[in-house]
Amino acid sequence: MSAPIAHGGGITAAAAAFGGRPEDWLDLSTGINPCPVALPDIPARAWHRLPDRDLVDEARVAARDHYGTGEILPLPVPGTQSVIQLLPRLLRQGRQVAVTDERVAVADDKVAVVSPTYGEYARAFTAAGFAVDAVNDVASIGAGHRLAVVVNPNNPDGRAWPVETLVALHDRMKAAGGLLVVDEAFGDTDQWLSLASRAQQLSNLIIFRSFGKFFGLAGLRLGFALAREDILARFEDWLGPWAVSGPALSIAASLLRSDASTIGSRIDERCAGLHAALEGAGLRIAGGTALFTLVADTRANDIYTHLCRHHILVRNFDYAPEWLRFGLTPDPAADRRLGEALQGFER
């Protein structure tokens, strides 16, 4: 088994290493909206009873209307990480496999992952015995790949691919009998990049959407998968009954029907505040999305440690030691706190 990937959000470990109470730290290590929306009323039955079909169906209809997926009813899943884990199973199903040295070897079943990106895709396929090609652009994906993964916009650098580019990639994958997975975890603030409205016409496409990042409710562990019905049926079967909690389904149905424009405006405001703090400290913005900003600096490791000593956690990367990813600050006071800490860094 491969080593776990370090992700953002490790405030408890950071506090143990650098001191202070976790609740007093400023966590900028994730790409989650730092201003969570107010929770809607949750019916008592959502807590008391196992989630019945009507709750699932209500959330699916709300997601269909929110994402604009036409006849496709997005499948609620307990965080998109849960279905990332199922992709190797989907790819292997119906294929001839051989067991060699206690590892599953799949002949001619290469996977392409546009990289660098969210590391759990490569980890899941590698652990399942698939050969993974880390490619730097969609143009490098060829007929030899049975499945391709594109995170759009990408995490952590914010690279984005136009809809028509991805439609053309889908058509190439389909012609070769392959599947295209597009992860739109950060797509809520860049709807113009989304393939959701085209999913009904693209039969070999799977889209993952995050719920918690945009609404600031990552603790719900909720996401949606968009694909043709037979693929969604397999995911649903493999996840098992009651995979998503009743309260999560109820919250999703309510918030997905609400006006999200004020959430987007608040995120834009927070993004502007973060950029002002970074630029005021002379840091170079190298990429990002509305929910996070990537900084490139040869002193990244020293800046990371300096911020930890000020009880501010950002995301660093072992594969790109010059990168730091900054999540959004929750308010102007946090902008000032970050700016003052950065300006105190000895250059």
Rank of each mutant, 00 (worst) to 15 (best):
S194Y: 12
S194G: 13
S194D: 13
S194V: 11
L195M: 04
L195H: 02
A196Y: 07
A196G: 09
R198A: 10
A199Q: 04
A199W: 06
A199N: 06
Q200I: 02
Q201K: 10
Q201A: 14
L202V: 04
L202E: 01
L202I: 02
L202M: 05
S203M: 04
N204H: 14
N204C: 07
N204R: 11
N204K: 05
I207Q: 10
I207W: 04
F208L: 15
R209G: 00
S210L: 09
S210G: 00
S210E: 08
F211L: 09
F211V: 10
G212M: 02
G212A: 03
G212Y: 07
K213Y: 05
F214S: 00
F215R: 00
G216R: 03
G216E: 02
L217N: 00
A218G: 12
G219I: 04
G219S: 13
G219Y: 12
L220C: 02
L220D: 01
R221Y: 06
L222T: 12
G223T: 06
G223L: 04
G223R: 09
G223C: 08
F224D: 11
A225F: 12
L226F: 03
L226G: 02
A227H: 11
A227K: 07
D230Y: 09
D230K: 11
A233V: 08
A233S: 14
R234E: 15
F235V: 14
F235E: 12
E236Q: 15
E236Y: 14
D237C: 15
D237F: 15
D237W: 15
